[in-house]
């Protein structure tokens, strides 16, 4: 898939946007590119990019996270160094944005810098198997709420349809049709489809713009496996 210098990643809670973001960032980092991840999820203190600090460091990816991250402080404040993401030195930047309109407000204060950048895109990650956005219309209304809060319009849809370890190629294909529908409804192109790396090759002739992904967001009982 194609990346811009600034990549905003939106998506409903649980669509897998953090896992998608981490996969994109690590794919670029492994190619030797300079990558920065900005964790803007200041609404929900569980399961977000800044939980993967060590892993990102290992890959040479710079993480800019809320100052309250990795503490239990419920302080919705953003660090000043988010602004450094707009400098060329930060390389390719991914913004992991909170999962609804409340989360997307945090992006609003940077909207001016993003919109005047020469290379940016805003991706809306969808998952057919997330019950609250299972209808394309519901996904688009959530998208509109997010855009209204962030002032940065979505430019493309990402199909990240999965049911965790049960995901089959058929699920991805069903999600592909669904994501196309979301795109048609919103008047936006399908920018990519995230496919579990173990069967990504088998779908190459059926789906365009495949982004192979691994499960990087791990649960405690799988630790050390």
């Amino acid at each position: 898939m194609e990346f811009k210098r600034l990549n905003i990643v939106y998506g409903h809670y649980g669509t897998g946007k953090t896992n998608f973001t981490l996969n994109c960032a690590s794919a670029l980092a492994k190619r030797g590119e300079r990558v920065t991840v900005v964790d803007l999820d200041i609404v929900n203190p569980y399961f977000r990019s800044s939980d993967y600090h060590e892993e990102l460091k290992r890959l040479g990816i710079r993480l800019i996270a809320p100052i309250s991250a990795n503490t239990t402080l419920e302080s919705p404040a953003l660090p000043a160094d988010v602004y450094s993401a707009f400098s060329e030195e930060s390389g390719t930047v991914f913004f992991d944005v909170g999962g609804d309109d409340a989360g997307a407000y945090a992006l609003g204060r940077y909207s001016e810098q993003i919109l005047k950048s020469e290379s940016w895109q805003a991706l809306f990650v969808v998952n057919k198997f997330r019950s609250l956005i299972a209808l394309p219309g519901d996904a688009v209304s959530l998208m509109r709420e997010i855009e209204a809060a962030s002032h940065v319009p979505v430019t493309g849809i990402v199909n990240n349809s999965h049911v965790a370890e049960f995901t089959t190629p058929e699920d991805v294909l069903a999600g592909y049709a669904y994501a196309k529908e979301v795109g048609a409804f919103a008047g936006l192109p399908l920018a990519a489809t995230a496919v579990p790396a173990r069967f990504a090759d088998s779908l190459q002739d059926k789906i365009e713009n495949i982004m192979p992904v691994e499960v990087l967001v791990n649960l405690p009982w799988n630790a050390g496996k």
Binding site: Y13, N127, R130, S131, L132, A134, H162, A164, F166
Partner: peptide, 14 residues
Amino acid sequence: ERVLMKGNEALAEA
């Protein structure tokens, strides 16, 4: 069919 839910949402829907 199988859907993906956050624990808190699943408690509510159930």
